[in-house]
Amino acid sequence: MTQENVLSRAVEFAQTLVRVPSVSGTPATHDVIRAVEEILSRFSRSTSRIAAQSTGAPVLLAHCGSDDPNAPSLMLSGHIDVVPPAGMTDPWSAEIKDGRLLGRGSTDMKGGAAAAIAAFCEASQKDLKGSLWLILSTDEETDVKGVKAALEEPGAPRPDLAIIAEPTELTIRNEHRGDAWVRVDFQGRSAHSSRPHLGVNAIEAAALFIVRARKRLPEMQKEGPGIGPQTTSIDMVSGGAAPNVVPASASVTIDFRYQGEECGRIQEERILRVVEELRKDPDFPPVEVSTTITGDWPALSSSLENPAAQQAIAAIEASLGHKVEVTPMSGWGEGGYMHAFGIPAFYFGPGEGKLAHTPKESSPVWHIEKAAEAIYRAVMARCA
């Protein structure tokens, strides 16, 4: 292990991660895990293991400090997979230009992951009285199975607080909505298009459902304070076999952004209520209807009143030299799973979220440097 001020290497670590084309679901996600393992072996005094291997989306879990389960504890969290680099000319260059780190993942969220890694390595060289964890996933941009599976494993950590280094422009986000995807399948009966009366048209049923669902589903959803309205978005439609065949099947997939303790099952029940209403309409074809929850990711609503959060926020504010804004997050993140497993969590990291997933993705270098310092001070406030 190299003994030095590792915080100064946060940007270098970010460049190392950006150079790995770790698009979610590709073999390169294993390569980026190995890159982090190499950093930890050189710059930290820690133990690490690969969790959630059965999911095909490996999760790196590293630990340093006390093994006492009653010791003060903190987890640094993030993901090191990225979305495909659509529209980017040199997405893996990790070039620094005009004070910004360029490349896919520089914002979402390898800049933040690098800041967390640097803070973890620096803290690991100290005589920590508390317990410090680092967890990095590789499928946050797809189906998010890895971190859930890792937290379900025997002996998985349950720290006093998790800090997730998503791009927040060095502010704090402690709430976001949950997200559920529900597919609605319509099964009719095929026939030749010259004799449509012999068939049951699944696409017509789906079309009538869409018209009704656009009105009724929002009416069924409850509004909640603090994290924005619940939303319904009909995002995928498919069906039909050929232009001269009455379609026997069709499907509609709906994205629900929900509040608090709601879940995909509740959204599914609302869909079935809409279908029952439609069956009273004589124009609705006599199709069979089934629903499948294809994804369900829980909401985060984390109180910042607990001692661990108060310590961390005070340390972050001392590092930045000003009071930090606390607001909800519009999208979804792995803090939802932290909340589901009883771990208080908030987001704090470098970069502007509006640039994530865009051809112009980049992150201010000073953001990464400041985030590393602030996260390190939060760690020491809790674990030193």
Rank of each mutant, 00 (worst) to 15 (best):
V287C: 14
V200S: 06
K215E: 15
A52H: 08
M329D: 12
A248T: 00
S124M: 07
E361Y: 08
S190I: 09
V200K: 14
H176C: 08
L17A: 06
A35N: 00
W92A: 06
R270N: 12
S251T: 11
T232I: 06
L151K: 07
I80R: 00
D108R: 05
A123T: 10
T55R: 04
Q311F: 13
F346C: 04
D67C: 05
A250R: 05
S363L: 14
E334V: 01
A299L: 08
G295K: 05
A114Y: 09
E276G: 12
D296Q: 08
E140L: 00
V200G: 09
G240Q: 15
S362D: 01
G351N: 06
A374Y: 11
V245L: 01
A28T: 10
I50P: 06
A299D: 07
A71L: 04
L170W: 02
S290L: 07
V184W: 02
R19D: 10
F186I: 04
C64H: 12
E277V: 02
M109F: 09
A345F: 11
F43A: 14
N70H: 14
Y337R: 02
D68W: 13
V200F: 01
S46W: 07
P359K: 01
D255N: 15
E141T: 00
V245S: 01
W332Q: 14
G353F: 10
L136W: 00
R19S: 07
E122G: 00
S93K: 11
H197D: 08
I80V: 05
Q53I: 10
R377G: 03
S22A: 14
R104C: 07
E219I: 00
S301H: 15
L355E: 02
S93A: 11
K280F: 00
G146Y: 02
D81G: 00
I316F: 06
R45V: 10
A165E: 11
L7I: 09
G335T: 06
M220R: 14
H197M: 12
A384S: 15
L170K: 02
T253K: 08
G188D: 01
F346A: 01
R189S: 09
